[in-house]
């Protein structure tokens, strides 16, 4: 496929106004974001009622783990966007490579999170330490579950792509998994500053 036809194809995709993936995944994404939204409202209310505890809380957390996971998730979002871009151009192998990289980035996120929980445990921080850590564990563990669910989706589209289920013309499944993965990244974009940065 020459460069000109690739550019025309990209331009057509941009102008289409179509739904990336399918409507079902967007209903799921809105439901998930609503759930996270409720957690954020709970955070705001709990923080207003317990300003000292919420001011001290982030100082006990490992900010470096939070930064590392933010960089990992942003990079994984970039990887999956590259996978979608590649499949739109009919580059199945390249798309496969980017999906695999996204999956491994998700795995790296899980490893950092487990290590962070382990370090918290060594410092004597638990779910019932105080209201800040209760909210922290609810938010971050819930997010971790979403990351793992997203990784299952990535594994599924990796296998489907391996068996040539996706092409430049038909790739709704891959786009749907990518949109879900971006949602996981978007939720973390809010979680990271409120828990680790804003003391």
């Amino acid at each position: 496929m020459n460069d000109l036809s690739q550019i025309i194809k990209q331009s057509d995709n941009k102008k289409s106004g179509a739904i990336p993936g399918d409507i079902a995944v967007w209903i799921l994404i809105f439901a998930e974001l609503f759930e996270f939204g409720l957690f954020f409202v709970i955070f705001i209310v709990a923080k207003a009622h317990n300003p000292e505890i919420f001011s001290a809380g982030p100082q006990h957390l490992d900010t470096l783990s939070g930064i590392a996971n933010t960089f990992i998730l942003i990079t994984s979002s970039f990887f999956i966007a590259k996978a979608v871009q590649a499949i739109k151009l009919g580059r199945v192998k390249a798309s496969q490579k980017w999906i695999a990289l996204t999956f491994f980035a998700g795995l790296a996120y899980c490893c950092v999170k487990v290590w962070e929980y382990h370090m918290n445990d060594l410092r004597g921080i638990a779910l019932d330490t105080d209201i800040f850590f209760t909210v922290y564990y609810y938010l971050t563990f819930n997010h971790l579950l979403h990351v793992m669910f997203g990784m299952c989706g990535l594994l599924w589209v990796f296998l489907r792509n391996h068996f040539k289920a996706y092409s430049a013309e038909r790739h709704e499944g891959l786009e749907a998994a990518a949109c879900y993965w971006h949602m996981v990244d978007l939720a973390w974009i809010i979680i990271f500053p409120i828990l680790y940065v804003l003391a």
Binding site: G17, A18, I19, A81, L186, I190
Partner: peptide, 23 residues
């Protein structure tokens, strides 16, 4: 920081998900 959160969200929505030219 909250302004940066909104900016980051817009960047992901528009350019990584690609909603700028979509639905």
């Amino acid at each position: 920081v909250c302004f940066i959160v909104a900016l980051k969200g817009q960047l992901v929505i528009d350019h990584l998900i690609g909603l700028r030219f979509a639905h």
